[in-house]
Simulated assay, not measured.
Amino acid sequence: MKLVKWLLLIVLAVVAVKQWQHNQEVSLGPGVKVAQAPVQKPISQAVPFEFEDYQITPLANFSLQAKVLGREDYNIDRESELSPTDLALGWQKMSDESVLAEIDITQTRRWYYWRVEQFPIPRHDIETQSANMHLIPADSQVANVLKKVKKGQIIALEGQLIQAKAADGWSWRSSMTRDDTGAHACEVVYVTSLSVIE
């Protein structure tokens, strides 16, 4: 019985250490770290494909560099079968830590929220230079990189904005613009390449 308790304590300690490491924020200092907005290119003839028992239809090719404003991992909702992690990402003014220091950012239930006492930049810039993205790793290599991504880092990713459908009628469709807010404004990204730049 004592052995079981010790093993349980060891497992809990390992989980706690991993969670602590996972939550460590990277600071890169003030200044815009990503000057360019995400790049989206239309697909002339989208070819649906099967992935994890879902039909995936590419809607646009998509690439970006961005600062990680937050991350939230999921494992019990329907969407987590495809997307284990949401990243709140920022570019242009929303990649500047002197701006971000004035913005309280949180994520929950697949939503990204921000709050300010006073606007450090115009509201429109906050809304259009940041987004919550539901990331679907295309393979184990992307999944392994995604597991290690930390708040504050600069990442680069490539893939497609997609719509996912299941045989039971469930579907999940990406936003197709960075200008929208509220429900259905998040990007659903099938990620074929992911790297941490700094």
Rank of each mutant, 00 (worst) to 15 (best):
A35S: 13
L146M: 09
M176W: 08
P30Q: 06
V196T: 04
W170M: 00
Q24Y: 09
S171W: 08
I103Q: 02
L8T: 12
V191C: 10
D179G: 15
I162H: 01
V32Q: 05
H22Y: 13
P137M: 08
Y113M: 06
S98A: 08
T57L: 01
I103W: 07
A46Y: 06
V11C: 12
T106F: 02
Y54N: 13
E97D: 09
S80V: 01
Q40A: 13
W170A: 00
D125G: 07
P58F: 06
R71I: 13
I76L: 13
T108P: 14
Q141H: 15
I103H: 03
D77G: 01
G159N: 03
K2C: 12
L12C: 15
E198C: 04
L12F: 09
L89M: 07
K150F: 04
G159V: 04
A101L: 09
L146Q: 02
K165E: 14
A88F: 12
L8F: 13
Q36K: 11
H22N: 15
V188C: 03
Y74W: 01
V14E: 11
E50H: 07
A164E: 01
E79I: 06
A101W: 09
V188L: 10
L12W: 04
A143Y: 03
S130Y: 11
L64C: 10
L194H: 02
L100N: 05
D139E: 06
D104M: 07
S174L: 08
E102G: 12
H22S: 15
Q24S: 08
Q36H: 12
R71Y: 14
K150Q: 11
E72C: 06
I197R: 09
T106H: 04
Y54S: 15
R173K: 06
V14W: 01
L12R: 05
S193N: 14
M176I: 12
I162K: 00
V26G: 02
V15Q: 11
F119H: 11
I43P: 12
D179S: 14
V17L: 06
I154S: 06
D77L: 00
V189T: 10
L28H: 01
V34Y: 01
K67V: 12
D96F: 03
V47Q: 15
S98Q: 05
S175L: 08
P120G: 05
K67E: 14
V149C: 02
P84M: 01
P58V: 10
L9C: 13
I76A: 13
V189F: 01
V47I: 14
L161M: 05
T108Q: 14
V188Y: 03
